[in-house]
Computed example of a mutant assay.
Amino acid sequence: MAEIFREPTPEVAFGQVTSVYRKRREMSQKDLAEKLTELGMKVDASAVSRLESGGRTLKLWEAFKVAEALDVSLDTLLSFASTPASILRDARDRLDASWHGVRSEVVGFLHNLAEVKDHLAHHPELLAGLKDKEFGTPKSSEEYVDWVLKRLVRVSAELKADGEIDYGNTFMVSSEDERRASVELIMAMVSTFVDIGEYPDDELTESDDGEHSEEA
């Protein structure tokens, strides 16, 4: 029967990386125990052995002391002690946070766009000041959106042609199919941010600090 792989527990993983850094520092388990005792964590060599084997669960303050004794950041110890499950959990947490960040940014962009369109609709004479050598001047506030989009596409194309891709703000893929799939995903996401209707009056009130609040 094939051996079943069992993912190491966080205690075992932390103990393994602790052992690695202890040996890098050319410290014995007794040396580490003495250093930890000096720092206020009273342990002996057998306790360090249990820690490194994953048989001793640490409190948070003790983990900080271990990191201090080894002259390494706790983040470093924890990053090397990460398990596949914890890495996935952290990645999903970041994905969830970025989802909310994207939603906030996109909705804010649409609000700002609507504000510009509304202002141009009330002051159409301002359209004459919007000029582009290739795309001319938008004839209405509705055309303004398409006019801006064309300009953005052109700028992106020009940067690519000159080899000036902003890699820090560009998601790179290996094929046109992947690119199309990514764009479709983004479009599907954005579609969930837009709905038909009107804001309730209480959604448009301002909070005490003068900012718009959805919870007023």
Rank of each mutant, 00 (worst) to 15 (best):
D132K: 04
K139D: 14
Y144L: 03
W147Y: 05
K131G: 05
Y144E: 02
K133S: 11
S141C: 01
R154Y: 12
L159G: 00
L149F: 15
E142L: 05
K160M: 13
A161T: 01
E134R: 13
E158T: 02
Y144K: 00
S141F: 01
Y144H: 05
L149V: 15
V153W: 04
K133G: 10
I165E: 04
E158R: 11
S141W: 03
K150G: 02
G136Q: 09
K160D: 14
V153C: 08
S140L: 00
E158L: 13
P138E: 04
G136E: 10
A161Q: 03
E134K: 12
R154N: 07
F135P: 13
E143K: 10
V148G: 08
S141I: 00
K150L: 11
D162N: 10
E134F: 09
I165G: 00
E143C: 05
F135K: 13
G163E: 02
T137I: 15
G163P: 01
S140W: 00
K131E: 12
G136F: 09
P138I: 07
G129T: 08
K131V: 15
A161Y: 01
G136I: 08
S156I: 11
V153Y: 08
L152W: 10
V155K: 08
K139F: 09
A157L: 13
S156A: 14
E143D: 15
K150D: 03
G163F: 02
S140A: 00
S141Y: 03
R151V: 08
R154C: 04
W147P: 08
V148S: 10
E134H: 06
L149N: 13
W147T: 05
Y144C: 01
A157Y: 12
K150Y: 04
I165C: 01
G129K: 10
S140E: 00
L130Q: 07
K139C: 11
E164I: 06
K150T: 03
V145A: 11
P138G: 06
K160L: 14
E142N: 10
W147F: 10
V148C: 14
